[in-house]
C-alpha cells in the first residue's frame, strides 16, 4: 500500500467522523424542536448528486423577528456581497432580500418580514426562461445557472415576489463561493454552497430563534413539525406556487 492510498483513507475516515459529528450536533434540535432551534442540514457526500428525496425550505416566525428581518438581510448581503455596485443607481442595485413593511389599509395592522426568493415548487421564473438558466434543483432550490443566462430578464417579469436582480455593471472580487456578474440575473439561492457543505443558510444562522430550516419532505424534520403546529403561510398563496419559504405571523 502506497502513501497516497493511505492519505486517501485518512481523508475518507475523517470525513466520516465529520459527518458523525454533524449528526451529533443536530440531535438536540430534534429533541428541542419547540425551542425553535434553527433546524438541520445533513452533510451530503460531495461526489453525489442532490435528489428530490429532500426539499429544502424554511419557516420564518415574523412575530419573533425583533428587527423585521434586517439582520437576516444583512447576513445575506455579507455572505454574497450584493448591493454595493458602485456605478448603478439605487434602482439598479442588486437586492437578493429586503425587509418589507406591510400595513393593512383597513385595520392598520402592521408587521415587517424579510422577502427573498420563495423557492416555489412551480416557479414562474423557471417556466419562462428560454434557455433553462433559471432552474430548480432536485432538492427544491431555485437558482440561476449564470453560465447559460443570456440576460433577457424575462424571469424578472415573471416573478411575483420581485426576488430577482439584474447585475447592471462589471464586478470584481466577488465571493469565491458566490459567483455573480454583469449581464446576468441573480437571486437568493438558499446559500446552496452552504447547504451542500452541511451548513445552514446565512440568514437562518443570523436569526436562529425565529427561523427553522430543514427538509419539507420529511414529516419529522423540525421545520415540518413546527409548520404542523403553528402553520406556515405563503405570500400570494392564491397563485398556487407552493413556496418553500413559509411565514408565521403574516
Amino acid at each position: 500500500m502506497n502513501q497516497n492510498r493511505v492519505d486517501e483513507y485518512r481523508r475518507n475516515f475523517m470525513t466520516t467522523l465529520g459527518g458523525v459529528a454533524a449528526v451529533a450536533a443536530v440531535v438536540p434540535s430534534f429533541v428541542l424542536q419547540t425551542a425553535h432551534a434553527a433546524g438541520e442540514v445533513a452533510a451530503k457526500p460531495v461526489d453525489q448528486a442532490v435528489t428530490n428525496a429532500k426539499r429544502w425550505g424554511m419557516l420564518i416566525d415574523v412575530t419573533k423577528l425583533t428587527d423585521g428581518g434586517a439582520g437576516m438581510v444583512a447576513a445575506c448581503k455579507k455572505e454574497h456581497g450584493w448591493g454595493d455596485e458602485a456605478h448603478s443607481a439605487d434602482t439598479q442595485k442588486a437586492h437578493w432580500a429586503r425587509v418589507v413593511k406591510v400595513t393593512d389599509k383597513l385595520t392598520q395592522n402592521s408587521f415587517s418580514l424579510p422577502v427573498m426568493c420563495q423557492h416555489c415548487e412551480n416557479p414562474p421564473c423557471v417556466d419562462v426562461c428560454p434557455t433553462g438558466a433559471s432552474m430548480k434543483r432536485a432538492d427544491g432550490i431555485v437558482q440561476v445557472n449564470k453560465h447559460i443566462c443570456i440576460g433577457c430578464r424575462y424571469c424578472m417579469m415573471a416573478c411575483p415576489y420581485k426576488a430577482r436582480s439584474f447585475v447592471h455593471e462589471a464586478l470584481q472580487d466577488q465571493k469565491p463561493h458566490s459567483p455573480r456578474g454583469m449581464g446576468t440575473v441573480e437571486s437568493c439561492n438558499m446559500c446552496v454552497h452552504r447547504i451542500d457543505a452541511g451548513k445552514l443558510p446565512a440568514c437562518v444562522e443570523a436569526a436562529p430563534d425565529a427561523v427553522i430550516f430543514g427538509d419539507l419532505n420529511d414529516p419529522n424534520s423540525a421545520v415540518s413539525q413546527a409548520m404542523k403546529t403553528i402553520g406556515g403561510k405563503q405570500i400570494r398563496a392564491d397563485l398556487g406556487l407552493n413556496t418553500g419559504v413559509r411565514y408565521h405571523g403574516i
Binding site: K44, V46, D47, A49, V50, R137, D139, V192, H193
Partner: peptide, 8 residues
C-alpha cells in the same frame, strides 16, 4: 450547478 456535486 445542476446536481450539487462539489468534488474539488
Amino acid at each position: 450547478m445542476i446536481e450539487g456535486i462539489r468534488t474539488k
